[in-house]
Design a protein around this nucleic acid. Structure first.
Lengths: 338, 338
DNA sequence: GCTATTGGTGTAACCGCTTACATTTTGAAT
DNA sequence: ATTCAAAATGTAAGCGGTTACACCAATAGC
């Protein structure tokens, strides 16, 4: 069943059938309805490959994310897929993992499928060593590249980010204003936003003129931190005799592990220890006491990313190269900000 | 840059170039390396649309899942995408939601993109009212349809499931053997596996010759149950004066909410109350005490689904129409099975 | 009545690849 | 040297659309 069949069936040429399918205006009402009827009756669907060959697009966007089972990224993928589908675009998903070569390969695969654009979800795509980002810049030579939670300054690359630096700054400031001095910062990622968060913590501490030893800033070496891994890190810190009355983390799961540690150690939260998470996951409502966390507006970011992409694809030259949204601190039971 | 360019560049015909690209054996070593070199040098990539048009496939599989941000489905998507990519297939993702019409639309969209097969992830795709499954059966008239956690008996449909019935049966049996008599069953889905789980609970109770009122079996009306929603359900049950010493649930999140209720009510788990979750999510390790749960072997299911699909696509007639795997009970701190 | 315009339609080229079939080359056997 | 099968290569016909261009008919303007 192809366009020739419809052409025969209706007695008009394939050009006219094509015009009807594509909603061209230069078709008489009579012809249009005749063709439409024939299409409906026969259940004909245009062949996207043929169309793709001619138009050089199949209305498909590549989505790269390191790990779609990461709750944060999973939500992002969900929002983005939705947004794209609403605009009649398909979503070719590639879960790249965190390894650079794998990312590069995935990108190549997506490009080889001739996607109309690529969306990179998650700040882990932006490497400090800029030459590691070359494959992204190269890709941008072929199709628009959208970054969600990452920034890269290069032609044809568009960024949508949350101001993680400001958010952690604000959290830290609140801790300090509430009298907490012996702070701990635990993080698990050197990604773009991971660095921004760390920066925010450091600035807030510095601005408050507090001296804080480097031993109070701890990196947990794993993208997929488990509660028990992180808990061990906390225990180790405590075992070294380092006291703390406030723990700020880059991820809810780390914060949960701090709560676990506190319970085991008989430390009362928030009375003698403040804890703050980040990302505002479900688990921040599951744990006890419920976790103060930061909502970094993922849905908003994703919406904006998609709508910007649509602008870019329709050649709207006004698309912003970078958009920054503000996070929101959700205070629950693990802090008592003054 | 197309196959003609490579042809010109090397002085061989496009047919030979094509043969080299596709690894045909009838090419002399000299020609092959010459062509390969030209391809590498020019960075040429075959146009998948043209290829698709000729071969009527673009090596892309449609994945449907209700909600990729659901942790269970997200993991499934991750495993499946990985498996497909290893086999050089792309993954066209469609998050359908739980509404029937939307599912149907998504299926149509995937088919219109000419995917080579469709994988439906999650038992929510199989409706009790079989005519609601017609769109799936119809799709199977065009491409193979793979179900992960669902069963539908029709041509060209392949199922990979976990024996949820047996798992819940076993959990319930363990509760009873440990002396628990006042059981509660809380579930949140009438999906295929939701029904199987319920069946398992009922059978175990029946086989133990225990009388259990229907008020002890409670449906929580939401696909995306939140902890606080479910907690309210538990509180309501308790408020009715219904006593319970064991709660079995269809999902970890519900179990967590039971734990929250218990803590609020001063009930000690597992001393005076056993609680069991299902799915073995991260949260079962996050909560306190850690949650006994059921690992339903999602990764295994997904692997099997993908490898079966590869068999089907390569016309291997031995592909099993249905495969059932066994779940595994992970006992943690919320039960103390004897 | 003649020309210009415009709306509706058809023809055919093109998108870039695969592959059946035709043709040429190669090299071993005679 | 001749023959012939096998290996290597080329030719050309699709695959199913889109669209520039040509064409025709109908209408308007003069």
């Amino acid at each position: 069943m192809n366009i020739y069949d419809i052409s025969k069936k209706t007695g008009v040429s394939i050009a006219t059938v094509s015009r009807v399918i594509n909603g061209s205006s230069n078709v008489s009402e009579k012809t249009r309805s005749k063709v439409l009827a024939a299409i409906k009756e026969s259940g004909y669907t245009p062949n996207v490959f043929a169309r793709g060959l001619g138009l050089n697009t199949m209305k498909t966007i590549g989505i790269m994310c390191a790990d779609s089972s990461d709750p944060y990224l999973a939500r992002a993928v969900y929002y983005i897929e939705h947004g794209l589908r609403k605009n009649n675009y398909g979503s070719l998903l590639s879960c790249t993992g965190y390894d650079h070569d794998a990312k590069e390969k995935c990108m190549a695969m997506l490009l080889s499928k001739r996607v109309d654009a690529v969306i990179l979800v998650g700040s882990n795509y932006i490497e400090k060593d800029d030459c590691l980002n070359d494959y992204i810049k190269n890709a941008a030579g072929t199709v628009p590249v959208m970054l969600v939670n990452g920034v890269l300054n290069a032609p044809n690359i568009y960024s949508t980010v949350c101001d993680d630096r400001a958010a952690i700054y604000e959290v830290t400031e609140s801790f300090i204003k509430s009298g907490k001095r012996d702070l701990l910062y635990l993080y698990n990622s050197h990604s773009y936003s991971g660095m921004k968060k760390l920066e925010g913590f450091r600035s807030a501490v510095k601005d408050a003129k507090i001296q804080l030893g480097e031993e109070r800033i701890n990196y947990i070496n794993s993208y997929n931190v488990t509660v028990n891994d992180a808990k061990k890190v906390v225990s180790d810190i405590a075992a070294k005799g380092i006291k703390f009355d406030g723990v700020i983390t880059s991820d809810d799961i780390i914060a949960v592990s701090v709560l676990k540690y506190a319970r085991d150690a008989g430390i009362s939260v928030p009375d003698s220890l403040f804890v703050a998470g980040y990302n505002n996951f479900d688990i921040s409502e599951c744990c006890e006491p419920e976790l103060t966390s930061v909502d970094n507006k993922l849905e908003t970011l994703c919406h904006h990313c998609v709508s910007t992409l649509m602008d870019v694809l329709s050649d709207n030259r006004s698309a912003p190269k970078r958009m920054v949204f503000s996070a929101e601190i959700i205070e629950r039971e693990t802090t008592k900000f003054i």
